[in-house]
Amino acid sequence: MDWIFLAELSVNGALTGLLYSLFAIGLVLVYKSSSVPNLAQGALTMLGAYIVLAFSLSLGLPLWVAIPISIIIMFFVGLGIEKVALRRLAGRPIVMILMMTLGLDIFIRGTTMAFWGGTSRPMDLGVSYDPFFAGPLLLSRIHMIGAGVSVALFIAIVFFFRSRLGIRLRAISDDYMASWSVGISVERGVGLSWALASVVAVITGVIWGEIQSVDQSLSLLLLKGLTVAVLGGLDSLFGAVLAGILLGILENVGAAYLDPLVGGGSRDLVVAIVLILTVMVRPHGLFGRHDIERV
């Protein structure tokens, strides 16, 4: 066995995995406040990327201007989704909210298709694709940058949840009724969590857009992101980060050894197996909370 090859696969897998985590963080933010996996997160990611491109390619603004503008726009898109689509669903069965996120997903994909069509556009961040060697390992620069962004975002959000506003958001995710009873505006909290998830979507969209360029297939990140979020426990940020690394490594290493045997395409198979096994063996994921029961 070639240990250096295995190490290279693992490290690159972990880096890719952290990019899945980036996506999953957006899912976790919404899950914490609304108790539903947001099926529209993939479409939001794609929308974020398209908005960045609209400012940079069409209006000719530099990326460092286009990205912050898009973040602000998507923040308000997130707030708007809560206000228009979700507020009236309060108190309805969770499955209705889930269906609403599916509806949003289809709606956003349809609209972006109408506006920007199906052709693939490059998101040129100007990151070099020259080989980069860390010791004997060949690594991808954009993946390293993305992984760094992912970790930084995770840390920022963890600190945010310790602030007074963050504590209120966590209170909302614990108990709507009790939150209302002490004067916390649940509606605004849920709106804020959607807004933050939409901001995360822009960042995810930019990095994944650079890696695979921007087209409709960007929204399919949902499947891997969802697997990571479920494996991490859906409501755990740390779980999302760790599960991302884990899935990335499993996928990369697994595919490298399985692909020659089955003739390719085993990447998605590994992801599917992880998702199915998680749900069967450990439904609340690695770090998902089970409701506290005192003994």
Binding site: D175, M177, A178, D291
Partner: peptide
Amino acid sequence: VIEGRRVFEHL
């Protein structure tokens, strides 16, 4: 103070 205590359990 609503019935059944309802503290924020994870806080």
